[in-house]
């Protein structure tokens, strides 16, 4: 009987251990940690960063955009020997990015954290009081941009932007959530190009694409990554793209600008460090990322695979860019009555 009880006890411990896996996850996944542990024992000098393993923080679960970015970066940094520091990817999902932001902000002044940043960096603090803004963090680099494509179903009669402008009725346009980048693009389409639109928010790119596939709506704004296969397969017809210049990956698609309408909106993918970190830390990450974005692997495994438009900006310029983006969102969300 006692033996059996002991067995049960051990089994329970195993089950508990399984459930706790995420806590110990980083050390299990990345063998690099073990190799670097010895280094910690050496006397840490004041000027040598990093002093201990660096955490790459993804504010969404594995498989999400933040996670993909951080893990691809880590893989290339290790494969190409860009840095010999030990680095772990840590997922802090929840609160539309708020949990991850709060986690990194909680380590202000400590450079051993690098966080993936996308539109939620600005929109979540704008729409909810999460006790911090993007200004509390240190911008390190913008890695690329996701433009928006205006698409119609290939079966539709609309061939060009002019057809949409002269449709003579209110057109249903789909995109992701109200107040998001696609909504902003749609509002600009109405104001600048004069297309009469009725915006329908969907949850996620998949639903947007499905709605256009099923002819539920007249047109959509979505990012190239979700649409490219449907353009290739001939299901969707691209009308225009929201970049300054034509994009190498899709050279046949005209920009709104060349069609005579100044609609340039896009979302960014970048990385941020906690606030108040030393110049040395900023220089360390800047060098690391400059080397990273110059590799062929980065072009192939991240930029091309996710159909991102290149747009590297170093820290300070990324910060200025974020201020511009902040103003755009603040203005739009205030006009829509979503924030006061």
């Amino acid at each position: 009987m006692k033996k059996l009880l002991l067995l049960i006890f051990i089994l329970t411990l195993i089950i508990v251990g399984c459930a706790q896996e995420p806590a110990s996850q980083p050390s299990e996944e990345e063998p690099a940690v073990e190799a670097e542990v010895e280094e910690e024992e050496e006397p840490a000098e004041e000027s040598s960063f990093p002093e201990r393993p660096i955490e790459f923080v993804a504010s969404y679960a594995p498989g999400g955009g933040h996670d993909t970015l951080m893990r691809t970066m880590l893989k290339i940094i290790q494969d190409e020997g860009i840095s010999d520091a030990s680095i772990n990817v840590v997922n802090k999902p929840g609160g539309s990015g708020a949990v991850g932001m709060a986690y990194v902000n909680g380590h202000a002044g400590d450079g051993h954290y690098l966080m993936a940043a996308t539109s939620s960096l600005i929109t979540t603090p704008l729409t909810s009081d999460v006790g911090l803004t993007f200004r509390d963090l240190t911008p390190i680099a913008r890695l690329g941009i996701d433009p928006e494509l205006l698409l119609v179903n290939a079966e539709s009669d609309y061939e060009t932007l002019d057809d949409l402008i002269n449709a003579g009725k209110v057109l249903n346009i789909g995109g992701t959530s109200t107040g998001g980048i696609e909504h902003i693009a749609a509002i600009k389409l109405q104001i600048i190009a004069g297309v009469d639109i009725n915006y329908i928010p969907y949850q996620g790119d998949g639903e947007v694409v499905a709605a256009l596939m099923g002819n539920q709506i007249d047109m959509v704004f979505t990012n190239p990554n979700s649409a490219i296969d449907y353009i290739k397969s001939g299901d969707f017809r691209p009308i225009a793209i929201t970049t300054e210049e034509r994009v190498d990956l899709m050279p046949d698609i005209p920009t709104f600008k060349e069609l005579g309408y100044d609609i340039v909106v896009n979302i960014y993918r970048g990385v941020m460090a906690p606030g108040g970190v030393s110049d040395e830390v900023v220089a360390y990450y800047t060098n690391m990322i400059e080397e990273l974005v110059a590799t062929e692997e980065w072009q192939k495994d991240y930029i091309e695979r996710n159909l991102i438009v290149e747009g590297y900006l170093p820290g300070e310029e990324f910060g200025e860019y974020l201020e511009e983006v902040y103003l755009l969102y603040e203005e739009t969300l205030t006009e829509l009555g979503l924030i006061k």
Binding site: G95, S96, A98, S128, S177, T178, G180, L333, L336
Partner: peptide
């Protein structure tokens, strides 16, 4: 996501 509002967001985890 339909209205763009966040309701009862008294705590970041409630977003």
């Amino acid at each position: 996501y339909v209205s763009g509002y966040v309701r009862f967001n008294y705590h970041p985890e409630l977003i």
